[in-house]
């Protein structure tokens, strides 16, 4: 397999150095943009698998970059920011970030989060018996990692797809927050229930009809289950 390509959007030279040194030595291919102005172009040409994005850049609002990248690309997006409050975190997740890492951080944590996000972007590498799942008007192709709703292609981010895949493979089963966090996000995310809430919300927005029956049912205080709307 080729080296994993990472785009780092970060303006502080020492942090760039930190990330570059650590990733390069571990076999990643690292590209850097210090202002994010050309973020979309860089992703288009370099086609990185994952992007680390700082929110506070001198010339552009990081949220704006996040929105722009997520509109076009299904790559792994991790926000790395000094903004430590919950509101910023939820906002970033809502805009489609796969993860949110608060500065300061240790290298271990950065690597762990990148691994977890990459795992989600590469679900098709795993061995699965089932190739296709249909739930109501939703058709999920696990192999090609594509989702269609009433025949129309729906764009999902890696995390969204990973969550849907797990829900669909366990159709009808109540999945607890803990189970979802463990299976979809991986170790180290046990206390991040907001990730589940945000991503279930994003899936619902993309897959459910606003006035139709629920595809993903909330079991209060317990978790979520995927149900076939036509069978209820």
């Amino acid at each position: 397999m080729n080296a994993t390509r990472v785009l780092v959007i970060e303006d502080d030279p020492n942090i760039v150095d930190l990330v570059r040194s650590n990733l390069t030595v571990r076999g990643f291919e690292v590209d850097v943009s210090t202002d994010g102005e050309d973020a979309a172009d860089r992703v288009r040409t370099l086609q990185p698998e994952i992007c680390l994005l700082d929110l506070m850049l001198p010339r552009r609002d990081g949220f704006e970059i996040l929105r722009e990248l997520r509109q076009e690309f299904a790559i792994g997006l991790i926000v790395v920011s000094a903004r430590a409050n919950e509101a910023d975190k939820v906002r970033a997740l809502n805009l489609g970030a796969d993860d949110y890492l608060t500065k300061p951080f240790g290298i271990e944590e950065l690597l762990a989060r990148m691994t977890a996000t990459l795992r989600r972007t590469r679900v098709h590498d795993e061995e699965i018996d089932i190739q296709q799942i249909d739930v109501g008007n939703i058709h999920i192709d696990l192999e090609s990692q594509s989702v269609h709703r009433s025949g129309e292609r729906v764009q999902l981010t890696p995390t969204e797809f990973s969550l849907l895949r797990y829900l669909a493979l366990n159709k009808g089963v109540l999945l607890s927050y803990d189970a979802l966090l463990r299976e979809v996000w991986g170790r180290g995310y046990e206390n991040s229930r907001e990730y589940v809430r945000v991503y279930v919300g994003r899936l619902r927005a993309k897959l459910e009809d606003s006035d139709g029956p629920s595809l993903i049912v909330t079991e209060p205080r317990a978790g979520y289950r995927l149900v076939d709307p036509e069978s209820t």
């Binding site: 502080d12 020492n14 942090i15 930190l18 990330v19 040194s21 650590n22 030595v25 571990r26 506070m56 000094a82 903004r83 430590a84 409050n85 608060t102 500065k103 300061p104 951080f105 240790g106 290298i107 271990e108 950065l110």
Partner: peptide, 26 residues
Amino acid sequence: FGHELRTPLTAIQGFASTMLQPDVVW
């Protein structure tokens, strides 16, 4: 503190932890 101190702290913690990682010999 959030805004102004986190950046230098990141470099400090980051490089310190870099040297402590067992998988790389710098």
